[in-house]
Simulated scan of single mutants.
Amino acid sequence: MADTITVALVGCGLISLYHLRAWQASGAQIVAVCDTDTAKAEARAAEFGVARIYTDAREMFEDGGFEAVDIAASVGAHAPVARLAADHGVHIMCQKPLTETVAEAEDLIAYVGERVRFMVHENYRFRPHYMTVRRWIDEGRIGTVRHAAISCRGSGLCPREGTVPFLVERQPYLTGFRRNLVFETMIHHLDVLRCLCGPLSVVSARLNRLAEGLPGEDTAAILLEGDNGFIATADGCLVAPGYPPLHGDRLEVIGTKGTIVMELNRIFILGDEENTEEVDLLGRYQECFDIAMNAFVSGLRDGTLFETDRLDNLETLRLMENVYHAAGVEVAP
């Protein structure tokens, strides 16, 4: 593989800005962008100096000239584009969720096989406040992890006079999406719990809809278990007045020697609050994208495993889907 890895991007929506910045920071070269919306593709190409613009992914793959593809399009496009990539010998970086269901993900993973490298862009575990928690656990500050509880709260689906809720304005597809909080957002939190606590399974779950006029759940409570009776909980609500429109997180990890608390951007050990660390979440938002892209580039160059490769992320997808099963909700979105 050449020193400079060439990458094509599929999907030029809001999140692609952070993807492209991260690819630039990694030293990769973006050689093509593709979106069914020509204006979006042209805007991103102009912003990042990309010469090749496409509205058809198949045409882009047939023209070739790149070693990897970053699939940042909507979830329905993930599998078709990933299959094209495998057929053309192009390595895959795919935005989460990998597919809408576990069955589709298993079929896709089997289809791709070992023909190309395949990483899922699940970057939440790389966000700086969660990385701080991971570092403190690895340093042995709280001993062996024995229990964890994670939650997210936001007001993004609270009603706004004279207009639609913030998240509906930002993500209009939610008006037709029968799965919302767990599929769209708390899949990240389930992945963080797996990362911190090891293998988990869903014991029970309850989902609710507090926002009016939306088909998907916006409130959830989940009970999980691990080895030797380990218990973890995850809960969330996007209709929580007083919280910011974009949700914030709280995490508590109880160990044999201490307890780590993460409240929004503050991380501390109970009883040692004077050594609290604060993270500029907005100023460092780009960081998790940079870490993910750097890991992908390093993995391709060195042949090392991806932390969030397709098989690891499949376990997170299984947790997400099993939440809906446990809550008695159909899996199909």
Rank of each mutant, 00 (worst) to 15 (best):
F166G: 07
R301Y: 13
E273D: 02
E100V: 08
T175W: 14
L223A: 00
A32T: 04
A77I: 07
C94Q: 03
E122T: 11
D70L: 10
S298F: 06
L84D: 07
R83I: 02
F48M: 06
Y124E: 12
D235S: 07
L167V: 09
D37P: 11
R134K: 15
V164T: 09
L317K: 13
W23A: 04
R83K: 03
L157C: 02
E277L: 12
A232C: 02
C195P: 15
H121P: 08
A220N: 14
R58D: 05
D302T: 15
T4A: 10
Q171N: 06
V81T: 08
G242Y: 12
T38V: 15
S155T: 01
I254M: 06
R206A: 07
R318G: 15
D249F: 13
T36R: 14
R194T: 04
V145L: 12
L14S: 07
R194C: 03
A77H: 02
P159E: 06
C197I: 07
Y130P: 13
T144Q: 07
D272F: 09
L270A: 13
D249G: 14
L317H: 09
I187H: 09
T316L: 08
H78D: 02
V50P: 07
R153P: 14
A41V: 04
C94L: 03
A110E: 13
P245L: 06
T175A: 13
H121C: 15
F296C: 04
V112M: 07
I142L: 10
V33T: 11
G258E: 01
A82I: 08
T308E: 08
G213N: 03
E225V: 14
Y130T: 14
G242M: 11
T38F: 14
G89Q: 09
E307I: 14
F268K: 11
P172R: 07
Y54M: 15
G226M: 01
E217A: 01
D290L: 04
Y54I: 12
G226S: 00
F177I: 15
L181D: 00
F48P: 03
E67D: 02
S298R: 03
E104H: 05
A332G: 10
E104P: 00
A28C: 12
I187S: 10
G213Y: 10
R125I: 03
C197D: 10
C158Y: 02
S74I: 09
E100C: 03
E252T: 08
T163V: 13
M119S: 13
R179D: 03
E307H: 15
T132Y: 14
V81C: 05
S151K: 06
M60N: 05
G11A: 01
A68F: 01
C237H: 04
I15C: 09
G283P: 09
E330W: 11
V145R: 10
V203Q: 11
P215M: 00
H188I: 03
R125Y: 03
D302K: 15
L224A: 05
A2Q: 15
A22R: 04
I269W: 01
G154K: 00
E139L: 08
D272N: 14
E274F: 07
L98R: 01
P159M: 05
P215G: 05
